[in-house]
């Protein structure tokens, strides 16, 4: 991949069909996959030479992740789930004064009723995705990576979900990199990049 960059505070939509290399790109940024060649720079830091453990720690501190679905540990409470990243990220933990209060605030901002003690598996899919946003946002990591977070939602919920997500990232100046196969979502983002374009360049380069 020759060059792909996202600016700080930018909201970027990465469009691509499955198998186009989206997941690999996200894994590279998150540091669960190591780049054989080239440089991966995340939040201003070159993570290419980081060891596995360093990359895990870096991810915990810098990146909030939202999956397509099954975001939550089903047996944990909402509070457990929201606070989980702090467990692995001391700096993020340091920014949160009172975990439950912070979680409650985030959930309220995301339009969730007070569900902190509820078991995650009892929530609806829409609620689960919003809890996932709260979890990604807690401790204000500079980057949010979302892998098709709306694909499990119906059209109305999709729109409502994106409203809430954008409200959060805009409010805190968070960089958002979202992956989707749905071009209709593009209007809200600062920039839309098609995966084919990057991948093609990559193949030519290779």
């Amino acid at each position: 991949m020759p060059n792909f960059s996202v600016l700080r505070g930018e909201a970027v939509l990465l469009l691509g069909e499955s198998g186009s290399g989206k997941s690999t790109l996200l894994s590279l940024i998150c540091g669960t996959v190591h780049a054989d060649a080239g440089i991966v720079r995340v939040a201003g830091t070159d993570v290419s030479d980081y060891s596995g453990g360093q990359r895990d720690r870096f991810r915990a501190e810098q990146i909030g992740v939202i999956f397509q679905q099954f975001n939550l540990l089903p047996f944990g409470s909402v509070l457990d789930n929201v606070l989980l990243p702090l467990r692995f990220a001391p700096a993020r933990r340091g920014r949160v004064e009172n975990g439950p209060d912070e979680a409650r605030g985030l959930c309220a901002a995301l339009g969730l009723p007070d569900l902190l003690a509820t078991k995650a598996s009892t929530l609806s899919v829409g609620q689960q995705q919003r809890v996932a946003v709260a979890r990604a946002m807690i401790g204000r990591p500079p980057i949010i990576i979302a892998d098709e977070p709306t694909s499990a939602l119906d059209a109305t919920s999709q729109s409502a979900f994106l409203d809430l997500l954008f409200a959060q990232v805009r409010a805190h100046g968070t960089t958002l990199l979202m992956v989707s196969h749905d071009p209709r979502l593009g209007g809200r983002f600062d920039r839309v990049i098609a995966m084919e374009d990057i991948a093609r360049i990559e193949r030519q380069a290779a």
């Binding site: 915990a60 501190e61 099954f70 975001n71 939550l72 540990l73 467990r87």
Partner: peptide, 16 residues
């Protein structure tokens, strides 16, 4: 595996 992926995404090391 899903559960483990969530832990990993949150920054848990494989050793954790």
């Amino acid at each position: 595996r899903r559960e483990m992926a969530i832990f990993r995404a949150m920054g848990a090391r494989p050793a954790t």
